[in-house]
Amino acid sequence: MDVEDSQLSTGEIEAMARRIDRPVVLVGMMGVGKSSVGKRLATLFHWPFVDADDEIERAAQMSIPEIFATHGEAYFRDGERRVIARLIQQEGPNGSGARRVIATGGGAFVNPETRSLILERAIAVWLDSDIDTLIERTARKDNRPLLQQGDPRETLTRLRDERREAYAQAPIHVVSGSGPHGRTIAKVLQGIGQWL
């Protein structure tokens, strides 16, 4: 479902959070705002936020660029799949079940096994954006191994085209523009409300 702007009260957001019995997993291209939106969504829900990339780095005791350079992308994707599976299935604090917000790396949802697990055990939200916004946002960090070679616009356009079919399997589709993340979060909340 594609989602438009909406505003919910704090009480409505808290009631929604209580109705959800699984993690909310944000998927989409690098630079789309999964971590920024995820942190704010987790705060609204009073849930933990987990960035899968941070967890992968912690488990490997290496940065993602180091993992790519030392072991290659296939090794990274295998570790990513295992970490996301653990995060989805892991019980939360105080018997809260697996209720948390998880931001995944851009390629995670492309893996059929990871995608199947997310679709079965979580609420998948595809954050989407135009190429210009992705270029502007990804230029802020130099820790994106897939953008280290060649023209970033070309690479982002190719990856977005290749991954679109996988991302489109997420039940909630939200377009994140260049404006404030508050608008994107309102759309995510509306999408989750419709999913429930």
Rank of each mutant, 00 (worst) to 15 (best):
S35N: 01
S35V: 02
S36W: 00
S36F: 00
V37K: 05
V37P: 04
K39V: 13
L41G: 07
A42N: 08
L44W: 12
L44Q: 12
F45Y: 11
F45M: 13
F45Q: 10
W47H: 08
W47M: 09
P48M: 00
F49Y: 12
V50H: 06
V50R: 07
D51A: 01
A52V: 05
D53V: 02
D53Q: 06
D53T: 03
I56V: 04
I56G: 01
I56N: 01
I56Y: 00
I56Q: 00
A60I: 05
Q61H: 15
Q61M: 15
S63V: 06
S63F: 10
S63R: 13
S63C: 09
I64L: 03
I64Y: 07
I64G: 02
I67K: 02
I67D: 03
I67T: 01
I67M: 05
F68I: 06
F68N: 07
A69W: 12
A69K: 15
H71I: 03
E73G: 14
Y75I: 02
Y75F: 04
F76I: 04
R77T: 02
R77G: 02
G79D: 01
G79Y: 06
G79H: 11
G79C: 02
R81M: 08
R81K: 11
R81F: 06
R81Y: 02
R81V: 07
R82M: 14
V83A: 07
I84G: 08
A85M: 10
R86C: 00
L87R: 03
I88W: 03
Q89D: 11
Q89H: 05
E91F: 06
E91H: 12
G92R: 14
P93G: 11
P93L: 10
N94G: 10
N94Q: 10
G95A: 13
G97S: 07
G97C: 07
A98P: 13
A98D: 13
A98L: 05
R99G: 13
R100P: 11
T104N: 03
T104D: 03
G105Y: 03
G107F: 05
A108R: 07
A108I: 06
A108C: 11
F109S: 08
F109E: 02
V110E: 08
N111D: 10
E113L: 06
T114V: 01
S116G: 01
I118R: 01
I118H: 02
L119A: 11
E120Q: 12
E120T: 10
E120W: 00
E120N: 11
R121M: 00
R121Y: 00
R121W: 01
R121I: 00
R121S: 01
A122H: 07
A122W: 05
I123D: 13
I123H: 13
I123M: 09
V125T: 14
V125S: 11
L127H: 05
L127E: 08
S129F: 09
D130Q: 14
I131M: 15
I131T: 15
I131G: 12
T133A: 14
T133Y: 09
I135V: 15
I135L: 15
I135Y: 15
E136F: 12
T138R: 13
T138C: 14
R140E: 08
K141I: 06
K141H: 12
K141Q: 15
K141A: 07
R144W: 04
L147C: 04
L147T: 09
Q148T: 05
Q149M: 00
G150K: 08
D151A: 07
D151F: 09
D151C: 08
P152N: 05
P152F: 04
E154G: 14
E154L: 13
